[in-house]
């Protein structure tokens, strides 16, 4: 079609709602959050420009330790998820055929049609002192008293990995599925070992899927609130919890905004680094 006034008109009609959405719900709220984080309350409805909320973060060890811990645990959760999910995805994509393959894939998806709350609740029932695992351990005689497996870092990690699994499995299965069997066969035919074929053919091909899975899982872990709170209990020390506390409990929006911005910067940096390291583009990875 030629660029007539007619098609220009349709462009504006399509562009307007999108731009409104982008400005009002994404860009301006974050700009506003930056501006709130850069002010200090002097008295009621009287603010001055200040970096105090940010300096506070570095002065108070609880804050930055929570921050580092959250980031570290999220990276760890991402790696564990990848390690668990890759063989499974490979199995579904390459070892299975036809109906069984579709069935296994759907089976992977099912838990994620259920609310995260329900999933976490399931782990609580399993791990708590009066829970199934504890009872089971007593029954087989490994323990002679109830064991509390909830409210520790391992419980948080299990919850995070479980909750994020789908977002790793789906991109991995999709990319691995698009790898032509004949490439793997050619790899063996030309004398490659299992390890060669894995590192030189399969993993390079799956790289977009690995990166996109890792980014999404990392983001979900970093921004998670529910799982650390419920499985980690009072001492979960998760950074989103700090943000919630500042905003909702203490009503200190300035501090909360600063925390939010810091978390956003951290996540953007790690996503950016992940893309750079794997030489992938954001648009490719996300869609």
């Amino acid at each position: 079609m030629d660029k007539s006034s007619y098609t220009r008109f349709s462009l504006w009609i399509l562009l307007l709602p999108f731009v409104l959405w982008l400005l009002l719900l994404i860009l301006l709220p974050h700009v506003d959050m930056v501006s709130i984080s850069l002010r200090e309350r002097v008295s009621a409805r009287n603010y001055t420009f200040s970096f105090k909320n940010y300096t506070e973060f570095f002065i108070e060890p609880l804050y930055w330790r929570t921050f580092v811990r959250t980031a570290w645990m999220s990276v760890l959760a991402t790696l564990i998820t990848l390690l668990i999910a890759f063989p499974v995805s490979y199995y579904i994509a390459k070892m299975m055929r036809g109906r069984l393959k579709a069935l296994l894939f759907i089976l992977c998806l099912i838990p994620f049609w259920v609310s995260e709350l329900v999933r976490t609740y399931g782990w609580m029932i399993l791990l708590r002192e009066t829970g199934l695992l504890s009872t089971f351990l007593q029954w087989i005689g490994l323990s002679d008293q109830p064991v509390e497996m909830l409210y520790n870092d391992v419980a948080i990690m299990i919850g995070l990995v479980y909750t994020s699994m789908l977002f790793m499995v789906v991109p991995l299965v999709t990319t691995l599925d698009s790898l032509d069997d004949s490439l793997i066969e050619a790899g063996y035919d030309l004398g490659g070992s299992n390890w060669n074929v894995l590192t030189e053919i399969i993993i390079p091909h799956a790289m977009p899927g690995i990166v996109s899975g890792c980014i999404v899982v990392f983001m979900l872990s970093l921004g998670n609130y529910l799982t650390p709170i419920l499985l980690g209990g009072k001492d979960s020390l998760w950074f989103t919890e700090q943000i919630f506390t500042q905003f909702i409990t203490r009503f200190n929006w300035e501090q909360g905004s600063a925390f939010g911005i810091l978390l956003l910067i951290l996540s953007s940096l790690i996503v950016w680094a992940g893309l750079k390291l794997s030489r992938q583009s954001f648009t490719n990875v996300m869609s």
Binding site: M33, G223, Y225
Partner: peptide, 10 residues
């Protein structure tokens, strides 16, 4: 890539 909590507070 914006954590849900941050999208909410913003």
């Amino acid at each position: 890539v914006i954590p849900g909590v941050i999208l909410g507070v913003s």
